[in-house]
């Protein structure tokens, strides 16, 4: 005698459809805003010719890394290699997607992380959700993203945000909780309001840990935008997908290499910001 099957899958499907039919307008609005964000960012990144843009990015690395010439030079070389592989436009599209996904993930993740650090109740509810978000195979996010937002950059971005946000929340929470107890007591003993305590003491002292979370968030975004190509996100991910479909190792490898270069540049920028 078999137990009746619990219809988890059906339930999720019903829930997703319900959201789609009741909040369609809101989802459309969200889609428009996020779409405009990605497109706008892409346009900015493509404003200058590749060579000039590569110089601008290298100069930025030089500035944030406290005038580390070697780091700036290798950044420039890497970007020139991308241009040489004729992957510049696709790379800038990927970069736009990564930056906008990261921004959204931070805008949501940091406040949620702060909430977790202040309330044990919130922390105990949110932690298992984060565990679920991180262990669920990332492909699974693609399905509801498609149902809500159709195909294209926006659903890819949503799936990326969901995938990349957990470390931001976790590390913001951890960073604030790790602020030495006596320093928090100092803030209180001198009559700080909760907001002053957060802004003047906890966040500045948690900043290195929070920045490690930002770094993680960027790296995870970058890995997810490739997968998001399966639901129509543009950029280098799409090129990798083409390489797989045609069993064209050259195309796939070149696109992959470009992703690695972008990852290195972004990693250096965030690390420099953390150390600075």
């Amino acid at each position: 005698m078999a137990l009746p099957r619990i219809p988890i899958g059906d339930g999720v499907e019903i829930a997703v459809n319900w959201v789609e039919s009741h909040f369609g307008g809101l989802l459309d609005l969200l889609s428009t805003v996020l779409g405009a964000l990605v497109e706008g960012l892409k346009d900015v990144l493509l404003l200058l010719p590749p060579l000039a843009m590569a110089l601008v990015i290298a100069a930025f690395v030089w500035a944030v890394s406290k005038r580390n010439f070697k780091m700036a030079a290798s950044t420039l070389l890497g970007l020139l290699l991308i241009e040489n592989m004729q992957l510049w436009t696709l790379s800038m599209e990927t970069l736009a997607l990564v930056i906008s996904s990261t921004l959204v993930a931070l805008v949501i993740g940091i406040p949620v992380g702060i909430l977790c650090s202040r309330s044990d109740a919130a922390n105990s509810i949110i932690t298992p959700i984060l565990d679920l978000m991180q262990t669920m195979p990332s492909f699974v996010y693609l399905i509801p993203a498609v149902i809500f937002f159709g195909l294209g950059n926006v659903p890819g971005m949503i799936a990326t945000v969901v995938f990349a946000m957990p470390p931001t929340i976790r590390l913001t929470n951890l960073g604030i909780r790790q602020v030495p107890k006596d320093l928090v007591e100092v803030a209180e003993a001198f009559g700080s309001t909760p907001k002053q305590k957060l802004l003047k003491v906890q966040l500045p002292l948690a900043m290195p840990t929070i920045m490690a979370g930002v770094n993680q968030c960027i790296m995870l975004s970058l890995s997810m935008v490739v997968i998001a190509a399966m639901i129509g996100a543009r950029g280098l991910g799409y090129q990798v997908l083409v390489g797989i479909q045609r069993v064209d190792i050259g195309t796939g490898f070149e696109a992959g290499l470009a992703i690695v270069i972008i990852a290195m540049v972004l990693d250096r920028i965030t690390r420099s910001l953390t150390e600075g």
């Binding site: 320093l183 007591e185 100092v186 209180e188 001198f190 002292l205």
Partner: peptide, 30 residues
């Protein structure tokens, strides 16, 4: 706490992200 009660802590408990004068001025700042 701001006006009547000053406090000095064991192990100093100075804010590492602030300069000496900013540390001293903290109570006045808040």
């Amino acid at each position: 706490r701001r006006t009547k009660l000053g406090m000095v802590f064991q192990n100093f408990a100075l804010f590492p992200h602030r300069t000496i004068i900013e540390n001293v001025a903290y109570g006045l700042e808040v």
